[in-house]
Amino acid sequence: KELVLVLYDYQEKSPREVTVKKGDILTLLNSTNKDWWKVEVDDRQGFIPAAYLKKL
């Protein structure tokens, strides 16, 4: 499984997104879309802008 580091706080703006904090380490589920990556946060799955994440 691939992990990503959150570079900036992000507040979800729709039900398909998730809220994260800078410094969080998340499981990356899908990065095929270059703009929005799907991650897992506390048993929730959702999207975050790829620019907010860095692969570890």
Results as ranks from 00 to 15, higher is better:
Lys1Ile: 13
Lys1Arg: 13
Lys1Glu: 09
Lys1His: 11
Lys1Pro: 14
Glu2Gly: 11
Glu2His: 12
Glu2Thr: 13
Leu3Thr: 08
Leu3Asp: 04
Leu3Ala: 06
Leu3Ile: 08
Leu3Arg: 11
Val4Glu: 00
Val4Thr: 03
Leu5Arg: 07
Leu5Trp: 06
Leu5Val: 11
Leu5Glu: 10
Leu5His: 04
Leu5Met: 11
Val6Glu: 00
Val6Trp: 01
Val6Cys: 08
Val6Thr: 03
Leu7Lys: 05
Leu7Met: 08
Leu7Gly: 01
Leu7Gln: 04
Tyr8Asp: 09
Tyr8Asn: 11
Tyr8Ile: 08
Tyr8Pro: 00
Tyr8Glu: 12
Tyr8Ala: 14
Asp9Pro: 07
Asp9Cys: 05
Asp9Gly: 06
Asp9His: 06
Asp9Glu: 05
Asp9Ala: 07
Tyr10Gln: 01
Tyr10Thr: 01
Tyr10Glu: 00
Tyr10Lys: 01
Tyr10Leu: 01
Gln11Thr: 15
Gln11Val: 12
Glu12Asp: 05
Glu12Pro: 10
Glu12Gly: 14
Glu12Lys: 14
Glu12Tyr: 07
Glu12Arg: 14
Glu12Trp: 09
Lys13Tyr: 05
Lys13Leu: 10
Ser14Tyr: 07
Ser14Asp: 14
Pro15Arg: 08
Pro15Met: 08
Arg16Tyr: 15
Arg16Lys: 13
Glu17Asn: 06
Glu17Thr: 07
Val18Met: 12
Val18Gly: 02
Val18Gln: 02
Val18Asp: 00
Val18Asn: 02
Val18Ser: 02
Thr19Asp: 03
Thr19Leu: 02
Val20Leu: 03
Val20Pro: 00
Val20His: 02
Lys21Phe: 12
Lys21Leu: 08
Lys21Asn: 09
Lys21Gln: 11
Lys22His: 06
Lys22Ser: 08
Gly23Cys: 08
Gly23Pro: 00
Gly23Tyr: 05
Gly23Ile: 00
Gly23Gln: 02
Gly23Met: 03
Gly23Lys: 02
Asp24Thr: 14
Asp24Arg: 13
Asp24Lys: 07
Ile25Phe: 05
Ile25Thr: 06
Ile25Val: 13
Leu26Gly: 12
Leu26Arg: 03
Leu26Asp: 00
Leu26Thr: 02
Leu26Lys: 01
Leu26Pro: 01
Leu26Trp: 06
Thr27Arg: 14
Thr27Asp: 06
Thr27Cys: 10
Thr27Ile: 15
Leu28Asn: 01
Leu28Tyr: 02
Leu28Ile: 05
Leu29Ser: 03
Leu29His: 05
Leu29Asp: 01
Asn30Pro: 04
Asn30Glu: 15
Asn30Val: 08
Asn30Ser: 15
Asn30His: 07
Asn30Cys: 11
Ser31Gln: 08
Thr32Pro: 04
Thr32Tyr: 10
Thr32Cys: 13
Thr32Ser: 13
Thr32Glu: 15
Asn33Gln: 10
Asn33Leu: 09
Asn33Ile: 06
Asn33Phe: 09
Lys34Glu: 12
Asp35Trp: 15
Asp35Ala: 15
Asp35Asn: 14
Asp35Met: 15
Asp35His: 15
Trp36Thr: 03
Trp36Lys: 03
Trp36Leu: 05
Trp36Met: 07
Trp37Gln: 01
Trp37Arg: 01
Trp37Cys: 03
Trp37Asp: 00
Lys38Thr: 08
Lys38Phe: 14
Lys38Ile: 15
Lys38His: 10
Lys38Gly: 05
Lys38Met: 15
Val39Cys: 08
Val39Met: 01
Glu40Thr: 08
Glu40Asp: 07
Val41Arg: 12
Asp42Thr: 09
Asp42Tyr: 11
Asp42Gly: 15
Asp42Met: 14
Asp43Phe: 11
Asp43Asn: 14
Asp43Pro: 03
Asp43Gln: 14
Asp43Glu: 13
Asp43Lys: 11
Asp43Arg: 11
Arg44Trp: 10
Arg44Glu: 05
Arg44Phe: 06
Arg44Asp: 04
Gln45Lys: 12
Gln45Ile: 14
Gln45Glu: 13
Gly46Val: 14
Gly46His: 07
Gly46Lys: 04
Phe47Pro: 00
Phe47Gln: 03
Phe47Tyr: 15
Phe47Arg: 03
Ile48Pro: 00
Ile48Asn: 01
Ile48Gly: 01
Pro49Ala: 03
Pro49Lys: 05
Pro49Phe: 04
Ala50Asp: 01
Ala50Glu: 03
Ala51Tyr: 14
Ala51Val: 14
Ala51Trp: 13
Ala51Glu: 09
Ala51Gln: 11
Ala51Leu: 12
Tyr52Leu: 09
Tyr52Pro: 01
Tyr52Asp: 02
Tyr52His: 09
Leu53Asp: 00
Leu53Glu: 00
Leu53Ser: 04
Leu53Cys: 15
Lys54Ala: 11
Lys54Pro: 00
Lys54Trp: 11
Lys54Asp: 05
Lys54Cys: 15
Lys54Gly: 05
Lys54Ser: 10
Lys55Phe: 07
Lys55Arg: 15
Lys55Ser: 06
Lys55Ala: 07
Leu56Ser: 03
